[in-house]
């Protein structure tokens, strides 16, 4: 651990550093993990495309892309990226050196997601895990049920617009796919901040169906429609132009009533791209690592659980993760 982030001594690189560094391996494209300005970057091709869309061509000096499962040599370390199931392009970083294997999970989830490859557990000696929802009160219901609640509300209040706050990268595209799978084939209306990343997903071959920009005077005519926007836009002037909007927010934090009420959310949807408590603890059992390090989130509870199951466990307090709200 250094002030810049998680440092791999034998390879001479950082994993997901939050300052610009000479050499970085990035797990995924969320802004709290992938910062711009590194001299050399290793990431999946999809993550590289997301970086370009967010930061332009100057996102990093030199970008090397790695396919899932393809070993790369950096210094004395063999680096392999494995699917993490979090968002498009998200990866775990497998580090092998002198007979020891360390897996850095990045952010991950274990549930099916039509927009990304499923998490692949890899047995290891040290597992570095996230713990965003590392408390046993966080058990996400099936996302399909939450989407059914949204559609039931649209049917019950056809004279109102359903305005759903979603994180621009990952949640937005997953929710669109979930809506399509539930049979919603009408156009889905997007806040301008979501359009660019939807295009990245479409270029990666993910079909999102008809999308329209929700802007200008047209907003008044969107009764009975579903509009997606970043969470911050829910309380914005932009949101007031819709007819009697029902404000919804798709996030794992919506499990906690007080969180939903703080945001003034009328229809909280518990849909998360992070592992819930059961997925976190199941993953510790699956990878069977003697040592567990917990990077960010509710470290204390997961460390307690890991120790009770016989792992040597400690919290790595990494500042800076979770800054982009990606629950």
């Amino acid at each position: 651990m250094t002030p810049q982030g998680l440092w791999c001594e034998a390879g001479g690189f950082f994993v997901d550093p939050h300052r610009a560094v000479p050499r970085a391996v990035l797990t995924h494209g969320h802004a709290d993990h992938a910062r711009p300005g590194h001299e050399a970057v290793l990431a999946t091709a999809a993550t590289a495309a997301i970086l370009r869309a967010r930061y332009g061509d100057g996102a990093a000096g030199r970008v090397e892309t790695g396919a899932y499962g393809e070993p790369k040599r950096i210094g004395d370390v063999t680096v392999t990226l494995l699917p993490a199931g979090h968002i498009l392009g998200s990866a775990q970083v497998v580090l092998e050196h002198a007979g020891c294997r360390v897996v850095v999970s990045g952010d991950f989830k274990r549930r099916a997601d039509p927009t990304c490859a499923p998490f692949e557990p890899r047995a290891c000696d040290v597992f570095v895990t996230e713990a965003t929802f590392g408390l046993p009160v966080f058990r996400h219901p099936p996302a399909e049920d939450e989407v059914r609640r949204l559609l039931a509300s649209v049917r019950l209040f056809p004279e109102r617009t359903h305005l759903v706050g979603v994180y621009a990268l990952g949640k937005c595209q997953r929710l669109i796919c979930l809506l399509r799978a539930a049979g919603w084939d009408r156009p889905i209306w997007l806040h301008g901040a979501l359009v660019g990343l939807c295009t990245v997903y479409e270029r990666a071959g993910i079909d999102l169906g008809p999308l329209r920009p929700a802007a200008g005077g047209e907003r008044r005519a969107l009764a009975g429609e579903i509009v997606l926007c970043p969470p911050s836009a829910l309380a914005d002037r932009w949101a007031r132009a819709f007819p009697e909007p029902v404000t919804a927010l798709a996030s794992g934090w919506m499990r906690i009533r007080q969180r939903a009420r703080q945001r003034g959310v009328e229809l909280p949807l518990v849909i998360s791209d992070h592992a819930d408590w059961d997925e976190l603890t199941q993953t510790l059992a699956d990878v069977g690592a003697p040592s567990v390090l917990v990077t960010h989130g509710a470290e204390e509870a997961l460390v307690h659980h890991a120790r009770s199951r016989g792992h040597a466990a400690a919290a790595l307090s990494i500042a800076g993760y979770g800054d982009e709200e990606t629950g």
Binding site: E300, H304, H305
Partner: peptide, 10 residues
């Protein structure tokens, strides 16, 4: 312990 941490949070 898990209950106490959870109650603290919720």
């Amino acid at each position: 312990v898990l209950f106490a941490l959870s109650y603290d949070f919720v």
